Computed example of a mutant assay.
Amino acid sequence: MKPAYLVPAVLLALGALQGCATRESQQQLQDASMALQSVSEEPQILQDAPKDVMRAGESLDRAKRFADYWGSAEDVIHYAYLSKRYSEIARQHSEQLQNQRRATQLNMERERLREAVQQARILDMQHQGRWLEDQMVSLAAAETDRGLVMTLGDVLFRPSSAELGSSANRTLLKVVHFLQLNPKRRVRIEGYTDNRGDKAENFALSKARAQVVGEFMQSLGVDAGRIEVVGYGEQYRVAENASARGRAQNRRVEILFSDEQGRLSNPR
C-alpha cells in the first residue's frame, strides 16, 4: 500500500498529464475546425469534392463528441486529424480538377487558333497584300536600329511565372499569321525582367518566358528553325526600376523580326 502522503502527488501528476492531453486535443480540434471552415467557404471546392468535405465534417463531429468524455483525448486527436486531412484532400482534389479543366480549355483554344491559322492560309491571294499590311499595323511593332520589334508586356504572363495567360493567345496569333504569310522571315524572342530579386533567377525567368512564347508559336505551326530564343534577365532596361511603372515596362518579351530574306540582326 502506498503511503498516504503519496496519493495527492499521484493525483496531481495524473491531472497535469490530462491537462496536457486536453490542451493538445483542443488545439487539434481548433485546427480541424479552421480547415473545414476554409474549404466550406469555397463554392468550387464544395462542387468538386463534396464527399471529402462531408467526411471532414463527420470526422470533426466525432472528435467533438469524444471531447466531452474524460480520458478520450487520443480519440479526439485521431478524429480531428482525420477531419483536417479530409479537408486537405478536398482542396487538392478540387485543384486537380481545376487544372484538368484549364488544360482542356487551353487545348480547345489552341485548336481554334490552329483552325484560324488554316483559314488565314487560304485567303484570296488578291487580298493578302492589304491584309498583310493591316497585320503589320495591328502587331504594334516598332522599327528600331535592330529591325522590327514587337513588345509583349508582363501582363500576358501569370505573375512571377513563365505561364502564358489567356490574353496572350490573340496577340501571338497575329504574329503566327504574319509568319505564315512570310515564310522566309524569322524571329528572335528575347526575355527581360526588372532588377528585383536574385539575378540568376531573373535570368532563368526571362529565358523561360521567351521559351514558352517560342513553344506556343511552334504549337501553331511555326517551324522551330525560324525561331531563336534568348534571355537577358535584368539587362537592357527600357525604364528606371525605381518605380512600379518602370519595373513593369522592363518585365517584357520582345519579338525581333528578320528582314524579308530571313536575316536577323546580331544578338545583343
Score class of each variant (00 low, 15 high):
residue 86 Y to I: 11
residue 149 V to F: 05
residue 121 R to V: 13
residue 138 S to F: 14
residue 129 G to Y: 15
residue 139 L to K: 00
residue 142 A to P: 00
residue 126 Q to I: 14
residue 122 I to T: 06
residue 149 V to Y: 02
residue 128 Q to K: 02
residue 159 P to D: 00
residue 102 R to M: 10
residue 107 N to A: 08
residue 92 Q to K: 01
residue 82 L to F: 15
residue 135 Q to L: 14
residue 84 K to S: 10
residue 120 A to T: 12
residue 115 E to D: 04
residue 94 S to M: 05
residue 96 Q to W: 13
residue 116 A to I: 12
residue 112 R to E: 08
residue 114 R to P: 04
residue 85 R to E: 07
residue 146 R to G: 02
residue 146 R to D: 03
residue 92 Q to H: 05
residue 124 D to Y: 11
residue 98 Q to L: 13
residue 132 L to N: 08
residue 115 E to M: 05
residue 132 L to F: 12
residue 88 E to H: 14
residue 147 G to A: 01
residue 98 Q to G: 03
residue 146 R to Q: 02
residue 147 G to Y: 03
residue 135 Q to P: 12
residue 77 I to S: 06
residue 141 A to R: 00
residue 90 A to N: 01
residue 133 E to R: 01
residue 83 S to K: 00
residue 130 R to F: 15
residue 87 S to G: 03
residue 130 R to W: 14
residue 151 T to Y: 10
residue 152 L to C: 11
residue 141 A to Q: 01
residue 87 S to Y: 11
residue 104 T to P: 08
residue 87 S to A: 12
residue 126 Q to V: 15
residue 138 S to D: 10
residue 141 A to K: 00
residue 144 T to D: 01
residue 93 H to F: 15
residue 81 Y to F: 13
residue 121 R to K: 06
residue 147 G to I: 06
residue 160 S to I: 07
residue 91 R to N: 06
residue 89 I to T: 12
residue 159 P to C: 00
residue 138 S to H: 03
residue 110 R to H: 02
residue 80 A to E: 05
residue 113 L to F: 11
residue 132 L to W: 11
residue 109 E to V: 07
residue 128 Q to R: 04
residue 142 A to G: 00
residue 137 V to E: 02
residue 105 Q to D: 08
residue 122 I to P: 03
residue 130 R to V: 15
residue 127 H to D: 12
residue 86 Y to W: 14
residue 137 V to P: 08
residue 100 Q to H: 08
residue 136 M to T: 07
residue 80 A to H: 07
residue 114 R to W: 06
residue 116 A to K: 05
residue 100 Q to N: 03
residue 127 H to S: 10
residue 97 L to G: 02
residue 90 A to P: 02
residue 122 I to M: 09
residue 117 V to L: 11
residue 160 S to M: 10
residue 103 A to W: 08
residue 160 S to F: 15
residue 81 Y to L: 05
residue 89 I to P: 10
residue 127 H to E: 15
residue 134 D to T: 07
residue 151 T to E: 05
residue 114 R to L: 14
residue 106 L to A: 07
residue 81 Y to I: 09
residue 100 Q to A: 09
residue 152 L to P: 15
residue 82 L to D: 01
residue 103 A to Q: 04
residue 124 D to G: 04
residue 116 A to V: 10
residue 84 K to A: 06
residue 81 Y to T: 09
residue 135 Q to I: 14
residue 136 M to N: 02
residue 103 A to P: 12
residue 107 N to C: 03
residue 123 L to H: 04
residue 157 F to L: 06
residue 89 I to H: 04
residue 126 Q to L: 15
residue 113 L to P: 03
residue 143 E to H: 03
residue 157 F to Y: 02
residue 151 T to H: 05
residue 112 R to C: 05
residue 143 E to Y: 13
residue 99 N to W: 11
residue 158 R to E: 14
residue 151 T to P: 08
residue 141 A to L: 05
residue 158 R to Y: 15
residue 155 V to G: 09
residue 119 Q to E: 11
residue 85 R to A: 11
residue 107 N to D: 04
residue 81 Y to C: 04
residue 153 G to W: 09
residue 93 H to W: 12
residue 84 K to T: 07
residue 115 E to C: 10
residue 98 Q to R: 00
residue 132 L to T: 13
residue 105 Q to H: 05
residue 129 G to E: 06
residue 83 S to L: 09
residue 139 L to V: 10
residue 88 E to R: 07
residue 81 Y to K: 05
